[in-house]
Design a protein around this nucleic acid. Structure first.
Length: 790
DNA sequence: GGACTCCGTATACC
DNA sequence: ACGGGTATACGGAGTCC
């Protein structure tokens, strides 16, 4: 018996997939002892409404259930058919607009209505079912697919809408060791597509996986099917895939994609999984398959690599090499999925979402669906989002700049969730009081899974428990964010502020505790502190002891842990620093030291300078500057070193309109895109560089597409890029006396450069006691829970 | 025309 | 269909002298 709050109140096991049928019912596919079966279950679409007035006179059959309590959404409106529900919504929009000062276009803008527009999710909420109960990840039968395509036009990528382009290879594999290649040398494209349809139906996978499958493989395949009049009937009920436009945003990144649903199966795009993964880790430089395979360490040493613009060439000249490449692609897709899918699998056992939906929705919406499922079960009215704004966040500070060490990095484990539990902070509108129950259950399940992971005897079990604990962690870490999320029904900004203010108090207590125990605090951010331990701390054991000592006096349930230990640290600005490990590895953090917006030559230069700084090698700093200066002046670098790559977030129309309205300035990225013959769509990336000879150019008037650069006539703006070099060098200004800085970052070697007498300045930029004084400014009530000890 | 501020956008940290 | 606040950097436009 699983916890119904987390896993739903229906205990049915082995549900593989659920599909909304055209007749309005749900087809529920299950598999036990290798036998797949399906059954039809009635489905009644619903939405929440604040006032029954808007549904008066609606002619189709419907039910209105008045819910308990007086919160905003007091009525649950239920229908017989999905289409009837939409008829009702259209009526409601008309009625609402008739009496409203500002009219709305879509249901999502209606403050009087709340709808989850996904029928399967609605069904799971009302039935209490979830997918995959009683199953292990490996019980899913997963098939991977990767296609290679041919382009007749050597300069442009293969285009499914051009008749002369085509699919040349379809590589397939599964999680049972099977693999297959549909080879375009042995048949027409039409025969290949027919073969693919028959293989999918015969092998009958639960999941179809691919890297960028939503934006490339599936649309390409479907377009070619249309051209050849092939029905891509791969649904378990014999239907073709259903497509719809989606938009996804992981933290600051957002983009549009077309999503596909196949009856009885799931489609998983490892490209989306990778982005989702990176929102918490933020370590990936690219979301390409090859990069990911290397990053996670499963790229085979003899892996075949082919540049994407050479695929057609290989097809014509070395088809065997291309074949190996395609099979390597599909294998890496399987491994990437094996690494990233399990945590989504275990989440799907809990939340009322289809597997594919769980893979591409954010955590807040997942938490809310757990709440809503319970509110529906209890026939409890549902609140509307809180009014106002959140006013406080994490505490960030910097006390020293320069090169300092040794460094201990400590962090408060699960700071915000722990605060919410220990101070029982939950949304004021949450009348059933289940928010903290959920958080508490997830927390204890995570600890349990971590324990089992540690004691597991084989790597497979370790992997399973790791996936479980990480799926719990994803939800746990989102409970705080949910409080401050403006669209959340149960949002509560005051509660969110209480959490962050407690967090700030705890950090300030730790800072004061470290200082009074003769440690030197260097930087602080939200839940972590970098500091130099007192001189008598000489080894790892002493460090642990010291951490225990400073953690004394923290509230119950708040734990301090060592996050890392380093030989030294370059402290630059808040959220900007570099760390030198005992293994000589260097980690660089912060947007001013490492960022996509810094040109490659600049990133190289800054990184090398940081190396030199951490090694206290002043002479090397000078040499780095001189050689980079020469390389730029003498056109020795490749254009890749100068490029800026940006994402075009707006469409051409939106951009031009904003310019004409004066709502936005012209920027180099869009101006370059406008000169290009290729049209762009939001989300596309563009690479450009600056031309001209003046260092003070207006960027948007002197920008050129990367592809237009000619190595025989390099026209990058040398003066401008030298200015950029000096801007990068300027970052090291604070670490030196003015005359020393000028000597290091200068081409003037008339008298020879000597590092003699030059040293790195390490200085206090803020006093710890000043930071403590801030407490009284921001702290409305007495912080007496622990500050008085010691 | 340089120094300055303001503002929108992009990127990063936790 | 969409978690949050805090922070740095940059380009462009406007203002002042």
């Amino acid at each position: 018996m699983t916890d119904p709050l987390l896993y739903g109140h229906n205990q049915e096991q082995y549900i593989i997939a659920i599909h909304h049928e055209a007749d309005g019912s749900m087809e529920v596919y299950s598999r036990s002892s290798e036998v797949l079966s399906s059954k039809k279950i009635n489905f009644f679409p619903f939405f929440f409404l604040s006032d029954t007035y808007y549904l008066k006179g609606f002619s189709q059959k419907h039910w209105i259930k008045e819910l308990n309590g007086t919160k905003h959404f007091r009525y649950l409106c239920v229908f017989e058919r999905w289409s009837h529900m939409w008829d009702a919504i259209r009526d409601i929009i008309v009625k609402y607009n008739a009496g409203a000062s500002s009219t709305v276009q879509t249901y999502s803008e209606l403050p009087i209505l709340h709808l989850r527009a996904d029928p399967v999710s609605q069904f799971l909420m009302q039935s209490g079912m979830t997918l995959f109960k009683g199953m292990e990840f490996n019980d899913l039968y997963r098939m991977q697919i990767d296609i290679e395509t041919y382009s007749k036009h050597p300069s442009s990528f293969s285009n499914p809408n051009r008749l002369e382009d085509r699919i040349i290879l379809i590589a397939l594999s599964d999680n049972r060791g099977w693999e297959y290649l549909i080879n375009g040398k042995h048949g027409s494209e039409k025969e290949m597509l027919l073969k693919l349809v028959s293989i999918i139906n015969e092998k009958d996978p639960d999941v179809l996986e691919g890297h960028n499958i939503f934006n490339f493989d599936l649309p390409y395949i479907l377009t070619r099917c249309e051209i050849h009049s092939v029905s891509f009937t791969v649904g378990r009920n014999g239907t073709v895939p259903h497509s719809f436009d989606g938009r996804i945003s992981f933290a600051e990144r957002s983009f549009e994609f077309t999503s596909y649903e196949i009856a009885g199966r799931h489609v998983i795009d490892t490209f989306l999984l990778l982005q989702n993964y990176d929102t918490s880790k933020r370590t990936l430089e690219s979301y390409g398959l090859k990069y990911a395979a290397q990053h996670f360490g499963f790229a085979k040493p003899d892996r075949t690599y082919i540049k994407s613009n050479l695929i057609s060439w290989y097809w014509d000249h070395e088809p065997e090499t291309l074949t190996r490449y395609a099979m390597d692609d599909v294998h890496e897709t399987r491994q990437l999925s094996e690494y990233l899918s399990p945590s989504v699998f275990y989440l799907t056992q809990m939340i009322p979402f289809n597997y594919g939906v769980a893979a591409r929705t954010g955590s807040s919406i997942k938490i809310e669906s757990l709440l809503l499922r319970e509110y529906i079960k209890h026939r409890e009215s549902v609140p509307q989002p809180d009014f106002g704004v959140q006013t406080t966040g994490g505490y960030t500070d910097i006390f020293h700049t320069g090169v300092l060490g040794p460094i201990l990095d400590v962090d408060v484990e699960s700071l915000y969730p722990s605060i919410m539990l220990s101070e029982t902070i939950s949304p004021k509108s949450e009348s059933l009081g289940i928010f903290l129950n959920l958080l508490e259950s997830l927390t204890s399940m995570r600890l349990d899974a971590k324990r089992k992971m540690k004691s597991a005897s084989n790597p497979e079990m370790k992997g399973k428990y790791d996936a479980m604990q990480s799926s719990y962690k994803i939800l746990i870490n989102s409970f705080y964010g949910y409080l401050g999320y403006s669209k959340a029904l149960f949002s509560d900004y005051a509660a969110a502020d209480n959490v962050t203010q407690s967090g700030q108090r705890i950090l300030r207590h730790l800072i004061s505790s470290i200082s009074t125990n003769n440690g030197t605090v260097v930087e602080v951010d939200t839940d972590g502190i970098f500091f130099i331990p007192p001189t008598h701390i000489k080894n790892e054991k002493d460090e642990l002891h010291f951490v225990d000592k400073i953690a004394k006096g923290l509230p119950k349930g708040i734990n301090l842990a060592v996050n890392g230990r380093y030989k030294s640290m370059l402290s630059y600005k808040m959220k900007n620093y570099a760390l030198l490990g005992y293994d000589q590895s260097i980690k660089i953090k912060g947007s001013s030291l490492t960022s996509r917006s810094i040109e490659k030559f600049g990133k190289t230069f800054i990184k090398q300078c940081i190396n030199a700084m951490l090694g206290n090698n002043i002479n090397e700093l000078h040499q780095l500057y001189v050689s980079m200066h020469r390389n730029i002046s003498e056109h020795k670098l490749d254009i890749a070193d100068f490029l800026r790559t940006e994402t075009l977030k707006e469409s051409e129309e939106e951009y031009l309109q904003a310019i004409n309205n004066g709502a936005r300035n012209r920027t180099a990225s869009y101006e370059t895109a406008l000169t290009s013959t290729n049209k762009w769509k939001p989300g596309d990336k563009i690479s450009y560089y600056f031309t001209g000879s003046d260092m003070n150019i207006r960027g948007f008037e002197n920008c050129k597409l990367a592809d237009e650069w000619d190595p025989n006539f390099p026209d990058e703006n040398v003066a401008y890029y030298l200015r950029r070099l000096n801007e990068f060098a300027q970052k090291f200004d604070v670490f030196f006396q003015p005359q020393d800085f000028r000597a290091i970052f200068s081409m003037d070697d008339l008298f020879g450069f000597s590092p003699e007498g030059i040293s790195i300045i390490t200085q206090a930029v803020k006093d710890v006691s000043t930071a403590m004084l801030d407490v009284s400014d921001t702290e409305p009530h007495e912080p007496k829970i622990f500050l008085d000890e010691e």
